[in-house]
Design a protein around this nucleic acid. Structure first.
Lengths: 348, 348
DNA sequence: GTTAGCACTCGACACCGCTGAGTGCTAACG
DNA sequence: CGTTAGCACTCAGCGGTGTCGAGTGCTAAC
C-alpha cells in the first residue's frame, strides 16, 4: 500500500497529539483539530489503511488510534524536526556545564540532572571505562596528626582523594618528599590483574627510602590500589527517576516499580548505553530495546565527546510516547556545548 | 480509664500485627492468633475502651482496628524493645563504614544507602554545617599543560578538589612553591560576608610573588572561594526514595508523588533533621511532624557523632506503620560502629 | 475518490444486591 | 462484677447490569 502525503500528515497528527495527551485519538478529532479539508469518514478510511500497515493501533474496538512502535519509528526517522533550544533550556545547560567543568567527575551527573529536569524523563549517564586507569600524578597532602590525603590524578584527568589514617602522620615537608619519591615510581602505572601496582623489586627499594615510615608506605599503596580499582569499575548514575511517576502510562504502581527496578540494575544500563553505533544520536523505541524490561520505554542516547575525548554516554528514558523532538534537541545541545567549552579551555 | 496489663497486651498485638500486615485487625483474629485465654467478645470490650482512649482507630464502622498516632507513641515509648542487629545487618553496616572511612564525604551517603536497604525505608542524611568553613591546608597538583588541581582540606577534615584551567599550567616545582606561599597566607582563612578570602593588603603582596602568573593566582583564589562557599551551604542526601512505593499506604500514585516532592525540598529536610533534642534517637510520629507534608509519615532520626565530632544527622522516613524497632536498632548500630571505628583509628 | 448516515462495539461509570468480616449491645453465666 | 454467647447491624468489596458516549466500519449516494 502506498504511504501518500495525506496518510503521513494523519500519522503525524496522531503521533503529535498522542505525545501530548496520552489519549487515543479518533478520526473526528483529527478532522476538527487538524482540519485538512477532508471529513472524518475519509480520515477513518486512511486510518484503517495506516493500521493495516502496522503504523497505528487500536487499543480496543471502539477507541481511537495510538501510534505503534513502527509508527514512532517512521515519525522519528522522517517527520520529527530537531528544533533549536529555548532560552531557558539553553541557559540551564550552559550553566550546568560551566559550573561543573572544574570537577569533571560531577559534570556528567549534574548534566544528567539538568536533562532530567528539562525533558521530564529519567536520565542515565555512564562514565567511560575503555581502558585500565593509569596514574598520572599523585600527591600527599596533610590533614592532621593522624591522617593525610592521597590525591591521585589519573590519565583521564579524573582527580580522586583518599584519606589515609596512620598512627602518626608525617609533617608537611616529609609528605612533599614522599610525594616526589612515589611520583617517580608510580606515575604511568596501573593495577594489573593480581592487584599489584609496583614493578617487581621496586617495593624493596621504596621500603628502604621510607625506612621510618613503612606503615605510611603500605597505607598509601593500599589507598592508591583502592582508587585505581574503583576507577576501573564502570560507573552509572541515574537522575530524575521520579519523573516516571508523572507519566500516565506508569500510573499503576506495579509498572512504575518495574521500571524503577530495571533502572537499578547498573549492568543492564551499562550495556544499554554502551553499544553505541556510529550515529551521533541513537533512538531505541519500545520493542526494539534488547532489554526486555525496558520494552515499554524508549531510549534516546548519545556518546558525549569533545574532540577525541569521551565524557561518557547519556541516555534519556521515557515512555514510547515521549517527546522525541525535545529530547534529541537537548542531547544535541549538550554535546555541542560541552565541546565548545572544552575547546575554549584547551584552545587558550 | 485504667490502662491495665491486658489492654496493653492487646494494643501491642494490634500494633505488631498492623506493622506487619497493613490490614485492620479484628477482635477474633487477636483471640485466635495471640490467644490470651479470653474470648473475642472480651477483647471487643477492651478494644472499645482503647478506642475511647484514642489509642486505636476504626477506619470504618465494620472494620478492625488500627493504631492511632497516639497508639504508636505509647508503643514506641513503653512497649518497643531495641533488639540487637542480625548477622546480616551488622556486617552490612560494618562494611559500609570501614570501606568509606577514608572518604568521609561519601561515608554518610553510603551509610544512608545501606540503612535504606536494611529498613526498606527512605533515608535522609544531612552534613553538619555548624560554622564557617575554614581552610586547613591546600595544595596544587599538576594535571596537564592546561590545568592543575587545587586540593583543599577544611578544618572539618573534608577534602575537596577543584580543577583549575589556565592558559599555561606551571610545572611541578613551581606548583609546589606556589602551594607553600598560598598555604602560609590562606591557612586558617574562610570566606567572609563579602566573599573575599584574603586579608586586606595581602593580595598585593601575593601578586608580586606570583609575578609571572597573575592569572594562575586569580584562578586559584576563585577556585578556593568557590569550594568554601559551596561547603558553607548545607548538604542533604536522600536514599531509597523508591522504597516508598513498596508500602501499600502509598500505593496510589498521588500520595507517592506527594512524598517524593516533599523529599525534594532540601530546606525542609534540613530543618527536620536539624532540630535535634538531647535524646540520642528521636522519633516523630505522623501528626507530630511539624512539616505538614510529612504528617502521613514517621521519622526516626539521630545525630551521628563520635566523640565530640559530628558527622551529620540521619533520618529514616517511613509510613507511621513502619518497623520502629528495627529502624531504631539500625540507627543505634550505625552510631556505635562509627564511634568504634573512629576511636580505633585515632586511638592508634 | 469523498462523504453522510447508520448500526455496532465496547470501555467507563453508576447503580444495584449479596457476602463476609467485624462491631456493639444485651442477657445469661460463674 | 467480669466474662461470654448470641444476635442484629454496618459497611467495604465484589460481581452483575444498564446506560452513555466515543469511535468505528460499512454502505449508499454524491
Amino acid at each position: 500500500m502506498l504511504l501518500n502525503e495525506r496518510k503521513i500528515r494523519i500519522l503525524e497528527a496522531i503521533v503529535n497529539d498522542y505525545i501530548q495527551s496520552a489519549e487515543p485519538i479518533g478520526s473526528r478529532t483529527i478532522a476538527k483539530k487538524y482540519g485538512m479539508g477532508i471529513s472524518s469518514a475519509t480520515i477513518r478510511n486512511e486510518m484503517s489503511d495506516l493500521e493495516e500497515m502496522g503504523l497505528i493501533i487500536q487499543p480496543h474496538a471502539s477507541a481511537g488510534r495510538i501510534p505503534s512502535d513502527k509508527g514512532y519509528r517512521l515519525y522519528v526517522d522522517r517527520l520529527m524536526r530537531r528544533r533549536s533550544l529555548t532560552e531557558d533550556e539553553s541557559s540551564v545547560l550552559q550553566q550546568v556545564i560551566t559550573e561543573n567543568i572544574s570537577q569533571i567527575d560531577y559534570m556528567m551527573r549534574e548534566t544528567a540532572k539538568a536533562i532530567a529536569v528539562l525533558t521530564k524523563c529519567t536520565t542515565v549517564v555512564s562514565e567511560p571505562r575503555a581502558k585500565r586507569t593509569v596514574i598520572r600524578h599523585l600527591q600527599l597532602v596533610p590533614v592532621d596528626d593522624g591522617s593525610f590525603v592521597l590525591v591521585l590524578v589519573t590519565d583521564s584527568k579524573v582527580v580522586k582523594n583518599h584519606l589515609v589514617y596512620v598512627e602518626r602522620a608525617p609533617d608537611y615537608e616529609t609528605l612533599q618528599y614522599y610525594s616526589a619519591i612515589l611520583n617517580s615510581v608510580l606515575a604511568g602505572r596501573s593495577v594489573e590483574g593480581d592487584g599489584d601496582i609496583l614493578e617487581p623489586g621496586t617495593l624493596e627499594r621504596l621500603t628502604e627510602q621510607f625506612a621510618g615510615d613503612r606503615r605510611v608506605l603500605a597505607a598509601v599503596l593500599r589507598a592508591a590500589r583502592s582508587i585505581l580499582t574503583s576507577e576501573d569499575e564502570a560507573h552509572v548514575y541515574t537522575s530524575g527517576v521520579r519523573n516516571i511517576l508523572g507519566f500516565p502510562e506508569f500510573s499503576d504502581i506495579g509498572k512504575a516499580r518495574d521500571i524503577f527496578e530495571a533502572l537499578e540494575e547498573k549492568d543492564m544500563l551499562i550495556t544499554m548505553l554502551g553499544r553505541n553505533g556510529s550515529e551521533d544520536i541513537e533512538i531505541i523505541i519500545g520493542e526494539e530495546n534488547s532489554l526486555e524490561r525496558l520494552r515499554g520505554c524508549s531510549v534516546i542516547k548519545t556518546d558525549c565527546r569533545a574532540g577525541e575525548r569521551s565524557f561518557g554516554s547519556i541516555g534519556v528514558i521515557g515512555p514510547t510516547r515521549m517527546d522525541y523532538g525535545q529530547a534529541v534537541s537537548v542531547l544535541d545541545g549538550i554535546v555541542a556545548r560541552i565541546s565548545a567549552v572544552i575547546n575554549a579551555l584547551s584552545g587558550g
